[in-house]
Every structure is written in C-alpha cells, then in structure tokens.
C-alpha cells in the first residue's frame, strides 16, 4: 500500500469507531462553550482551552479557577489530582504509543479518556497502519471537542432544544467498550477489580474525591495478585 491509500484506509477504519464520540463530544463541547459563555468569557477562551487542555472535566474546573483569586500553585496541584488517571493510561499505552516515533507526541498529548478507551481496546487489522488508525481516532475526537466548544462559545445563548440526558452517551460508550473488552479477553480479574474497587471508593469518598483512592486500591490489589495472575497468564499460553 502506498502512503495515501494507507492513510485513507486508516481513516476509513478509525472514523466509525469515533461516531459515538462525535455525538458525545459535540454535545459536551457545546455545553462547555455555553457554560463559558454564561460565565461571561469570550468565545476565544473555550476554543483555546479545548485545544490545549483537551481534558473535558478539567476544562470545567479551569473555568472556575479563572473566576477565583490567582493561585497558580494550587491550580497546578488541583490539575494533577483531577488528571491523575492519565498516569495509568500512559503505563497502559507504553508499548502501543512508545514505538511510534514522532506520532507518539500527538497521541500522548491527545490521550483523553475516550481516545485512551478506544485505542487501548481496538483490534486493528494487521493490514492497516496501527499508528495512523490511533492517530485518526485521537485527532477526530479532538476535532469534535474543539468544534463543539467553538459552537457553544459563539452561539451558546441561541441553543434552546431540550438535550437533557444526552450526556448519557458517554456512559453508554464506556459500558460498550467495557463489554467488548470483556468478551474479547479470557481473564476478567482486572476488569472486575476496576469496577468493584472504584464502586467501593465512590461509595466511601464521594464523587469529587474517589479517583485517587480508587487508583491506589487498583494498583495495590493488582500488585498483590501479580504472582497468581502472571502464573495463570503463562499457563494460558
């Protein structure tokens, strides 16, 4: 395959994977733009923030940071806490992204929850350029988000139709990705642990503070189970 046809094939495979995100990100992006608009920010704020931060929940938090008194150090540590889960994405993608030369810089920059979830579980046919497919997944997702934030920021006050509940599209996406991964793998310890430990931490610590404890719990239990999980993996081979 020459360069252009391999790029086209990669795009053709990547785009359908991102359609749920097209719906979800346009909606959430517009919601974010409207939110910024309602706080009195010019449209250039949601546009630049969606382009450079590209981490949905953090952008909503950052909007509030701009309204309180200037404190870059606390803003920095708050960002690390909210986005700590990215560390796990990075460790999971060391193999897949690390080998991809210059492509990896954008892939890592754009590794939001959704791009990670798709790229980490996607079964890409061997005749396709895997790097290009993952690059398109990431790029398309960011385009949806920035376009949404731009529409919301510019036309925010004009949008009136009832979109209540549309945010469930992201929940449905993660559930479907979880199910697909479950069906396609033999060992389910890790998936179950992630689900159960996170649910327990959510019940104990509440929505605002459960992520870091959940990450530590997952890390701890996976480390304790390492001898038995690795043994089973070898036996399975």
């Amino acid at each position: 395959m020459n360069d252009i046809s391999s790029t086209r094939a990669a795009l053709k495979f990547a785009f359908p994977q991102t359609i749920p995100i097209l719906a979800g990100f346009l909606f959430l992006g517009i919601a974010y733009g409207i939110f910024m608009n309602s706080l009195g920010f010019h449209a250039i704020y949601p546009i630049l923030m969606s382009l450079f931060i590209f981490a949905g929940s953090m952008e909503f938090v950052a909007a509030n940071l701009l309204l309180i008194s200037f404190n870059p150090l606390s803003a920095f540590f708050l960002t690390l806490m909210v986005n700590a889960r990215h560390l796990f994405y990075g460790i999971s993608m060391l193999d897949k992204y690390g080998q991809l030369g210059h492509k990896k810089w954008y892939l890592i920059f754009g590794m939001c929850d959704e791009s990670f979830a798709i790229n980490s579980t996607l079964n890409i046919p061997n005749n396709l350029d895997k790097g290009k497919v993952m690059l398109f997944v990431t790029l398309l997702n960011q385009i949806y988000w920035v376009v949404g934030a731009t529409i919301g920021g510019v036309f925010g006050s004009l949008i009136t139709f009832n979109t209540e509940g549309l945010e469930f599209v992201m929940t449905a996406l993660f559930i479907v990705i979880f199910l697909e991964h479950w069906i396609n793998t033999k060992q389910h310890h890790s998936a179950l642990l992630g689900l159960i430990l996170s649910a327990i931490c959510l019940a104990i610590f509440g929505g605002e503070r459960f992520i870091v404890p959940a990450m530590l719990a997952i890390l701890g239990v996976l480390t304790l189970l390492r001898p038995s999980l690795q043994k089973e993996k070898r036996a399975a081979l």
Partner: peptide
C-alpha cells in the same frame, strides 16, 4: 501493569460516569 491496567481503568471510567 501495562497488561492488566487497561481493563481495570475502563472499569474505573464506567464508575466515573456515575460519580
């Protein structure tokens, strides 16, 4: 960790939606 984390993290993301 790179092998076992993705499944667990996607479980975390599912729960995250209900926060």
């Amino acid at each position: 960790l790179g092998k076992v984390l993705p499944a667990a993290v996607i479980g975390l993301l599912v729960i995250y939606c209900f926060k």
